[in-house]
């Protein structure tokens, strides 16, 4: 089994793995966007910048406080999530009664400002962040070498997606969230503090982006543009999966990562556009997205 469809097996599996890794990031990021959009009706264009902040937080925790990767995995989402809570309370919360477009413009502007601040401070060439020693090395799977860290990223991302889904579908607070997505005023009239729920939801979505940022730090170099490179694709993923659909964004995220990986093998010229081609086709056939409710 050296060749599959005339393609050397290591190349095929290598690209599949790469696709799965990218898919893990698409899934984590689009999940946060979907949760935020469902609850707040805000399209969070600062999501890429918040992902980047997560990676930078990991780098800074190591550089200035000597805290390693494992601490960063815990602290960076908390710190960046707290920053998200402040943004929501001071700015975004004022826009809920207005058209979607205002939230989009505000968060787009915030994203640009955050990126600019980091570029000004740290330049754009990128900072190194090392794979933690416990996760370095590679497994020999027989048909290919699998870097341990990459396997870890895919597994952790899958677990996070599952955990988020469980929280939303199977817990009390998740039922408040789902109900508020349908009719927030009525949920509030039952005695639930909906404004606080919205703040926490935004904070949690931002924390999820920062978590993905920490995971990404050892793979991609830590630089101010790392989020904006990714976020355009993630928005395509959200549109394909269906705005506000949790399951849709997870499945679509992983699925499109794999499709992208396979395209790199079979027709590399199309690899950077294949996701947008899929998006166009899906929008023509199902304008609400694959998993969206029309």
């Amino acid at each position: 089994m050296d060749e599959i469809f005339g393609i050397p097996a290591p190349l095929l599996f290598g690209q599949l793995l790469l696709g799965l890794i990218n898919g893990a990031f698409y899934a984590l990021l689009s999940l946060g966007l979907a949760v935020i959009f469902g609850m707040l009706n805000v399209i969070n264009f600062a999501h890429g910048a918040q992902f980047m902040m997560g990676a930078f937080a990991a780098w800074m925790l190591l550089e200035y406080a000597g805290l390693n990767y494992w601490w960063a995995l815990l602290l960076a989402p908390l710190l960046v999530g707290a920053f998200g809570v402040i943004l929501e309370r001071t700015m975004i919360a004022r826009l809920y009664k207005l058209d979607h477009l205002y939230g989009l413009l505000l968060t787009f502007g915030l994203g640009l400002i955050i990126e600019g601040v980091f570029r000004n401070q740290y330049g754009s060439s990128g900072l190194p962040y090392r794979i933690p020693p416990q996760l370095s090395g590679a497994w020999d799977l027989g048909f290919m070498f699998m870097p341990v860290y990459r396997g870890w990223v895919v597994a952790v991302a899958a677990v996070m997606c599952l955990a988020t889904w469980l929280v939303i579908e199977k817990t009390k607070i998740g039922s408040y969230l789902r109900a508020s997505t349908e009719n927030a005023a009525l949920v509030q009239a039952f005695g639930i503090n909906v404004p606080r729920l919205m703040t926490l939801t935004y904070g949690a979505g931002v924390a999820l982006a920062a978590f993905a940022g920490v995971l990404a730090a050892p793979i991609y170099s830590v630089n101010p543009q790392m989020g904006s490179n990714l976020i355009i694709i993630v928005f395509a993923v959200v549109v394909i999966g269906g705005m506000g659909s949790i399951l849709g964004s997870v499945i679509t995220g992983f699925g499109l990562g794999i499709i992208e990986g396979l395209t790199k093998v079979f027709y590399p010229e199309a690899s950077s556009t294949v996701i947008f081609v899929v998006m166009a086709i899906v929008l023509l056939a199902r304008p609400a997205g694959l998993f969206g409710r029309a």
């Binding site: 789902r178 109900a179 009719n183 009239a189 639930i192």
Partner: peptide, 24 residues
């Protein structure tokens, strides 16, 4: 008062459109 605080004083509200949540 905000609606959630009004409810907390001990008032239950059943709206005209019934407000049953489809995703629950």
């Amino acid at each position: 008062l905000r609606p959630d605080l009004i409810a907390r004083t001990g008032i239950g509200y059943c709206p005209e459109e019934r407000g049953i949540f489809a995703s629950l």
